[in-house]
């Protein structure tokens, strides 16, 4: 495998971030910028969106994991992202189980069978 691999970023509640950091994905770069965002009650939607966009613009990030209930808050930003890298994965959170019908990718795939496509 040539070159240095990319990072996995997380936007999630405390337990989700703690779990993934335990798994070894955490990084604080030279500018002390983390590759994760712990979303708390006080965290604003603007801050979440800004972090998500900054992760998308970083070339050293390969996968972005995001709790589905947080993804719902910034759905427009997620739907705008069409590139395959970084990949955006919606994951469940403790209070909100995963709902496939809300997932951006699966909704796009489901759109395949809409009336529009058969016209």
């Amino acid at each position: 495998m040539a070159g240095r691999g990319k990072l996995i970023a997380v936007i999630g509640d405390e337990d989700t971030c703690t779990g993934f950091l335990l798994g070894g994905i955490g990084e604080l770069n030279k500018n002390r910028k983390p590759n994760f965002l712990v979303v708390e009650k006080e965290t604003s939607i603007a801050e979440i969106e800004e972090t998500f966009k900054s992760f998308l613009s970083r070339s050293d990030i390969g996968i972005i994991l995001i709790n589905q209930f947080i993804a719902e808050m910034i759905r427009h930003a997620i739907d705008q992202h069409m590139e395959s890298i970084p990949a955006v994965l919606e994951i469940p959170s403790k209070e909100h189980p995963y709902d496939a019908s809300k997932d951006s990718i699966l909704r796009r795939a489901k759109g395949m069978f809409s009336a529009e496509d058969f016209r």
Partner: peptide, 10 residues
Amino acid sequence: EMQPLVRVHT
């Protein structure tokens, strides 16, 4: 201080 133990090759 954090250094990643996992990286992903794309």
